[in-house]
């Protein structure tokens, strides 16, 4: 599976990327929303793993943009924001460990 990972925390990005790759997936990591937007217009991805608070273009706006561009892909949000129900970082952790 070809995965786009948008996460500005380098260590977390590396951990997620390493785990996904260990599971046989191909991961492209981005630390900036605008870079990720450029990439998705050039290439297609099977899954988007998006942090919400990233520089350039945040994860939510990123998804709106690709929706406007009629690019379709499944997406998983990850965030440490405490205002969001069920902390997505833990959610992805659960996904990865089960």
């Amino acid at each position: 599976m070809k995965i786009l990972l948008l996460e500005d925390e380098v260590m977390l990005s590396e951990s997620i990327s390493e785990y996904l790759e260990s599971q046989g997936h191909q991961v492209e990591s981005f630390f900036n929303g605008l870079d990720a937007l450029s990439a998705i217009q050039e290439r297609s991805y099977d899954l988007l793993v998006l942090d919400i608070t990233v520089p350039g273009l945040d994860g939510l706006s990123f998804l709106e943009k690709i929706h406007e561009l009629k690019i379709h892909a499944s997406a998983i949000y990850i965030s440490a924001l405490v205002d969001i129900e069920d902390s997505p970082v833990l959610m992805i952790w659960d996904v990865m460990t089960t």
Partner: peptide, 16 residues
Amino acid sequence: HETNTPLSVILTSIEL
């Protein structure tokens, strides 16, 4: 908020 990421990194790294 700030504790979440390092904790996740630690647990993920241990797992890896």
